[in-house]
Design a protein around this nucleic acid. Sequence first.
DNA 1: CAACGAATTTTGTGATCACAAATGAGGAGC
DNA 2: GCTCCTCATTTGTGATCACAAAATTCGTTG
Lengths: 249, 249
Amino acid sequence: MAMSLISTAEDTSLRRQVYDSLREALTAGRFVPGQKLTFRFVAGALGVSLTPVREALRRLVAEGAFEMQPNRSVRVPLMTRAKILELRDIRIALEGLAAEKAAERASKRQIGRLRRIALEIATARSAGDSVTDRLKVREFHFALYAIADQPTLLRVIEGLWLQTGPYMNLLYPEFVSQPRGPETRARIIRALQSHDAVAARREIENDVRHALSYVADLADDSGNIAPASPMAAKRRRGGSKAAVPLELY
Amino acid sequence: MAMSLISTAEDTSLRRQVYDSLREALTAGRFVPGQKLTFRFVAGALGVSLTPVREALRRLVAEGAFEMQPNRSVRVPLMTRAKILELRDIRIALEGLAAEKAAERASKRQIGRLRRIALEIATARSAGDSVTDRLKVREFHFALYAIADQPTLLRVIEGLWLQTGPYMNLLYPEFVSQPRGPETRARIIRALQSHDAVAARREIENDVRHALSYVADLADDSGNIAPASPMAAKRRRGGSKAAVPLELY
DNA sequence: CAACGAATTTTGTGATCACAAATGAGGAGC
DNA sequence: GCTCCTCATTTGTGATCACAAAATTCGTTG
């Protein structure tokens, strides 16, 4: 006995796979804000029955990743400026807290991992690989928060990232044109090395504030975002079945 | 048209009713930490099929209100001291933020409502009505947070209260023996009147810190709480069906 | 008498079916 | 030409069924 130090028995249910697929599509920006999804459509696209889709989508709705009109289909939420600012302030509070705890506990090994990820970001960015860039930036943040070793906090933060996910694409031009990221990450790593919780919090707070303030400025108050691809609505008609990039692994 | 200023079309689905029932039972302390629940048992107790129960329980598990072994039944989480302290720090950050925003926006009418609830708490407490007392204390907090007018923040806070819910019973003796509550609430109300966001945050932070530090001190590190009713396990056997207080309205 | 193992029961999972409410298309009326 | 009504279709909801994995029971063995 005592053989499960690292969580064995991972969840292989269809529900989970559907949940992960939708979540991944959401964070990868594969859904347009405002886009509608029906249960049957998702079930068809993933080749499963309605049952696991319902449970997965229901959960996502509860987490705020999708929203649902009274008894109708779900859609990717349209964010107003106010809502983005709300998420910004919550994320500042929580990610600041996580950074603080991380700075108190960080081991050399953990700091090394952060440094490695920071390097990968730099590599991807100089190669113009925006996909890897965004992925690694996310990885850096969550590697940092994982150091805090606070499971509930981590889960809440994941929920918040899920909500901002579809909008974080918009950030990329800003990333490249005004690269404050590299220095920020260097300062964070230094803060962890010296176990300076206050500095770590400050750096994360500024980072989140900067990113989400920028996104908020792109939004008007009615749920529209500036460079929204205009071919969002008006699908589901015409000849081609409009193959949607949704895959179940 | 334009007739739904106040959210009409409330959710009447069975899923929602099951969810609310379980949630209410949880916050009312009607479940013992560690208690196990099977889907079929809940379905039977509430007189519905498995389908809505699954969706409701799944959501509660995702919210951390219940936990689930790999593929087995759900149970009310056993909290370790570390987990309570984690929840404490998250709640301090978020409820402090909400109090701050509330202080900035509070109207005379909203402050009046808070004052009325504070009075009802005092009445219930002097009458020794612990049930109403706890209910109204909760009402006071959420009335305060609702003033902040930040729907996402409110939802996250509700999720956190849900997790601490089964343990908040333990607080009641402390409430009565060391009544710091009335003065705290008076100070909060004064802070809202003068729109003093800093003071409002400080009061809420101290309140949450005090309450959850107290609960944490009752817990050892293995998930047991001091005055746990010992007849928690070992049910489900013997003659009587052990009528469980779970009702669907 | 304690520990192991096979048989039985329990329990979550996923698919399917029936149904009512909401949606959208098409036609009648002003 | 525009609005309103009606009917066919779409869509979420809840119940039921079949099934495999996990838990429990109980008999057997050392």
